[in-house]
């Protein structure tokens, strides 16, 4: 899969503090890339560097196979819609007037504005002053402003920040729809739940460093879920010297590999301990994060 964004050793230092440390991002084309990390982990700074709003201290950025430089930036930005830190918008103007500003700044057609408003379902509220919009409507207007240029890449920084669950679901559905249309979406969040079920590829940032990058499946491979052995006689199993914790269904074994699982099952069978079921515990993404970060808590 070709990459829309790649970075090599991307670093940003503010005085003595390194906000982003040697980042090697790889954002494939046509995916929703979830950029996760706690507040202050360097997500916004990274996104600003990707848009040329902040100059990297060192390292390089390649967008659409072209290096991002002051000379190429203007041309590259034509294909990139963005919303950084918070949705833009002029409160004293209506939603439509805000969109007209984007239209005139980018020489867009009326149909592009209408389509962007319809995509975020703001057409009915387009003549309302933005200062009277709800937070969710302001976020959607921000997305519409980013979408109006019909970008190939959408960079959204915390687009669900401050939204209620319904608003979060709405944005999530919208971004998945956009990705299905071939738009690459890079979306950041400090909340795991907002990214889960939306992102195809994840990049996890902690303290300015990329501690994981890959698919959800690859992330799960980083962590071995606990094993549950359902048995009506856990005492007999423990008497065999198996290290496990008795639970309601039987036994729970932690950090056990496939080979070790086979060996435990063999020993139980030989000893005549009844086994009703052997299964792995279904892990949440949060459990995996906890494992990944040494249970130090990432989010």
């Amino acid at each position: 899969m070709s990459a829309v964004i790649t970075t090599h050793g991307l670093t940003k230092t503010f005085r003595n503090q390194t906000a982003v440390d040697s980042l090697d991002l790889y954002v494939p084309q046509g995916v929703v890339y979830g950029f996760l990390g706690p507040n202050g982990s360097g997500k916004s700074t990274t996104m600003k560097m990707l848009l040329g709003l902040t100059r990297p201290t060192s390292g390089g950025i390649t967008l659409f196979d072209r290096p991002l430089t002051p000379a190429s930036r203007t041309d590259l930005l034509r294909s990139i819609g963005s919303m950084i830190e918070a949705p833009p918008g002029y409160g004293h103007l209506t939603g439509l007037e805000n969109m007209r500003i984007v239209q005139h700044m980018l020489d867009l057609a009326d149909t592009q504005i209408d389509h962007a408003l319809a995509t975020v379902r703001l057409t009915a509220h387009r003549d309302k002053l933005v200062r009277n919009y709800s937070l969710g409507m302001k976020q959607r207007l921000g997305v519409a402003m980013a979408l109006a240029r019909e970008p190939a890449l959408l960079v959204l920084d915390e687009p669900t920040n401050g939204l209620d669950p319904a608003g979060i679901e709405e944005i999530r559905t919208l971004l998945v729809e956009l990705a299905s249309e071939g738009i690459t979406v890079m979306v950041s969040s400090h909340l795991l739940d907002e990214i889960d079920r939306m992102a195809d590829v994840l990049g996890i940032l902690s303290g300015g460093k990329l501690i994981f990058q890959g698919t959800r499946g690859e992330l799960f491979e980083h962590s071995t879920p606990d094993l549950i052995i359902e048995t009506p006689d856990p005492g007999a199993a423990l008497a065999l010297g198996i290290t496990a914790t008795p639970v309601l269904e039987g036994l729970r074994l932690s950090g056990i590999t496939k080979e070790q699982t086979a060996e435990v099952v063999r020993r139980l069978a030989v000893a005549g301990v009844p086994i009703h079921e052997v299964r792995r515990v279904r892990q949440s993404l949060e459990d995996v994060f906890m494992d990944l970060t040494g249970r130090g808590g990432l989010l």
Binding site: T74, M83, G89, M105, L106
Partner: peptide, 12 residues
Amino acid sequence: GTNWNLLLTTSR
């Protein structure tokens, strides 16, 4: 707000 970002990410 972030209107400054909006201005600086136009291709003008």
